[in-house]
Design a binder for these strands. Structure first.
Lengths: 142, 142
DNA sequence: GATGAAATCACCCGAAAGGATGAAAATAAA
DNA sequence: TTTATTTTCATCCTTTCGGGTGATTTCATC
């Protein structure tokens, strides 16, 4: 739902930009016609213009794909569970997670198990993966 | 040293591709001249061509930036170990890694243990962390 | 004050992961 | 060809992880 809306927005932006560029193309076109420039120069201008547009679109497309922030609550994750998840992603063992949160090992395990079922995964490495993909935790250092 | 060589290779590839595209451009150009097509069609072809080229270059440029910073050999990691490391980062279990590489579980475990000692870590989550930080593996999916 | 969600803890059990060690093929390098 | 490295596999053992179940305590909300 929300994702679709976002995507649609992106499409609108791209569409608008494309439309503007079409107008620009026409302007350049008629300008060159009037001044009777060589067709090769015209082609070069068009080429350069669209090349830069393509690069811009390409980079932005790639950026879009890799990000996108999510709401932990949407997955039913509690505050505490997000905390645990962050510690998991930092490579801590169950015992270490328990120590850092000042709870027992059993409690930590319970949280972790709940996280797994809510994220629909089976291993901690997968949980970290998923959390990263959903940007529930910081994507990387620095 | 090796990194520079790699980059140079990339530049050569880009250069070569660009050269080829110039030739292609000329071919399209003369073809349209001969057949006396409208200048607008010519422009559209050039535009589309360079747009797609731009998108391709753009995405690849972005990928380059985020990848390939470190030399695995510098840490003493063998080719096979890097392979295993990538599978670890994708959240696979020891058994799954073994299956994907068509080796026994014991072999996979040996590789993994060696990776740990070479990366100076104790758990697989830490290995993934470190590999990510050192950009030994791709930062994110796809 | 009752209700429900969140957080806490415990116990059991099987599966997976990790450590230590040894060793046989296969490849690469000398 | 001989040496060195990589890749492969094995066995034994300990620790950690994960699943399942049940229970108690906060805490906010109605």
């Amino acid at each position: 739902m929300r994702k679709l809306q976002k995507l649609n927005k992106i499409y609108w932006i791209y569409g608008g930009v494309m439309g503007l560029l079409m107008v620009l193309l026409e302007v350049v076109h008629y300008r060159t016609m009037i001044r009777d420039l060589d067709i090769e120069i015209y082609g070069a201008i068009i080429g350069l213009l669209f090349l830069s547009i393509g690069i811009w679109v390409g980079t932005n497309l790639y950026k879009r794909k890799t990000k996108d922030v999510f709401d932990p609550a949407q997955l039913g994750l509690s505050k505490r569970e997000v905390e645990v998840l962050e510690l998991l992603a930092e490579g801590f063992s169950n015992q270490e997670v328990a120590d850092k949160l000042f709870v027992s090992l059993n409690t930590a395990k319970t949280h972790i198990s709940n996280i797994y079922s809510k994220l629909n995964v089976k291993r901690r490495t997968q949980a970290i993966q998923k959390a990263r993909d959903l940007a529930l935790i910081y994507p990387s250092k620095e």
